[in-house]
């Protein structure tokens, strides 16, 4: 049973280096499948290249889908990352 949630990119510089690094870091702690949809593109939550290719800018909406044993923990953790603006402003 997959879990799905939409969230807006809040940090100013969008999905760039540090946010992607932190995202991938956190994603790697979970066993479930993680998909990120944005701007009509799809990325594997474990692939920094694909996440970068989403070119997610400030204000873009991102749809997160997790699927697997720890899908709940994963989606909560990852959404919190977005909500905190990846520790930036």
């Amino acid at each position: 049973m997959a879990v799905e949630r939409e969230i807006v990119i809040r940090n100013k510089e969008g999905l760039h280096f540090r946010p992607i690094m932190r995202f991938v870091d956190l994603a790697s702690k979970f066993d479930c499948r993680i998909q990120v949809f944005c701007n009509e593109h799809e990325a594997d939550g474990h692939s920094p290249m694909e996440l970068l290719m989403l070119v997610g800018t400030q204000g873009s909406t991102v749809r997160l889908v997790t699927d697997g044993k720890d899908e709940q923990e994963a989606i909560v953790g990852l959404c919190r990352l977005f909500e905190s603006g990846f520790g930036e402003t």
Partner: peptide, 14 residues
């Protein structure tokens, strides 16, 4: 950190 991302992309299995 810039290079950390370079490193991650180069290592990216995808």
């Amino acid at each position: 950190t810039i290079f950390a991302l370079h490193e991650e992309i180069i290592a990216d299995k995808k």
